[in-house]
């Protein structure tokens, strides 16, 4: 996860903190959509995210920690 977001942010993965927001990392709307695609491909999950209403999507992208937690939930759901 950190690698995916770090690649979008053009930063070293070690620079990412869990409380960073996507804004902090300079990831714009296209970057979010591309990150989600990479997450889906890497973890074989489907992420419910609508770029029209990022705040209201079931998938929380408010911080690195929130994204990691959401992905963990989706992976757990898939296994269940």
């Amino acid at each position: 996860m950190v690698e995916i977001l770090a690649e979008q942010a053009v930063r070293d993965p070690s620079e990412l903190r869990m409380d960073h927001t996507l804004d902090d990392l300079g990831i714009d709307s296209l970057g979010v959509v591309e990150s989600i695609f990479a997450i889906e491909e890497s973890f074989d999950i489907t992420v419910p995210f609508n770029a029209n209403a990022p705040g209201e999507s079931e998938f929380d992208v408010s911080s690195v920690a929130a994204i990691v937690a959401a992905v963990e939930r989706l992976i757990a759901d898939r296994k269940a």
Binding site: V33, I36, F37, N50, A51, N52
Partner: peptide
């Protein structure tokens, strides 16, 4: 056609 558009996450 629709598969490509889905990717942008702008469709209702």
């Amino acid at each position: 056609g629709i598969k490509a558009w889905e990717g942008l996450r702008v469709m209702s």
